[in-house]
């Protein structure tokens, strides 16, 4: 083998070894465990705290409201859909109170007349004409809206 090639070969081997050493040092521990990513990232994403606790949790203390709601047309709606996330409230129920939205605008999010809403999917009202001075909750019980 000519001397030029030998020298080039040595240089090549050195460069490849440096690359392999750097790759070994810089690849994170769990990389490639399941695929081309850090396996531990799955646990890190899964460890994120939850904020919406689910309606089953509400039943433990507010069973009468949950039961009353179960008979009306709002029975399929989760408590936190209107009242907001309950993660602080379940830790400290006395000081951390949840929202009790009762404005016309809030009910209008679902019940205002809009051509885009299917008439089969939801009861709709013209909120500009239907008792414009009053809050909806003065006549309708939000947990049992038909009464």
């Amino acid at each position: 083998m000519p001397i030029q090639l030998k020298r080039l070969l040595i240089l090549g081997v050195v460069l490849v070894s440096i690359f392999l050493i750097l790759k070994y040092l810089m690849t994170p521990e769990s990389f490639g465990q399941y695929g081309h990513y850090r396996g531990k990232a799955l646990d890190e994403v899964a460890a994120y705290p939850t904020k919406y606790v689910g309606s089953e949790t509400c039943y433990d203390c507010h069973d009468s409201i949950v039961l009353a709601k179960s008979e009306g047309p709002h029975s399929g709606i989760g408590c936190e859909s209107c009242h907001g996330p309950g993660f602080k409230h379940i830790e400290d129920p006395e000081t951390e109170k949840l929202d009790k939205p009762n404005t016309r605008a809030f009910c209008a999010h679902c019940h205002a007349f809009n051509k885009a809403r299917s008439e089969k999917a939801i009861t709709q009202q013209n909120i500009l004409e239907h008792n414009p001075e009053d809050n909806c909750t003065e006549c309708h019980n939000p947990h049992q809206p038909q009464q």
Partner: peptide, 12 residues
């Protein structure tokens, strides 16, 4: 648990 958007969708 269900994803938050699905848990709180009023019409499922």
């Amino acid at each position: 648990l269900n994803p938050a958007c699905m848990e709180n969708c009023p019409t499922k």
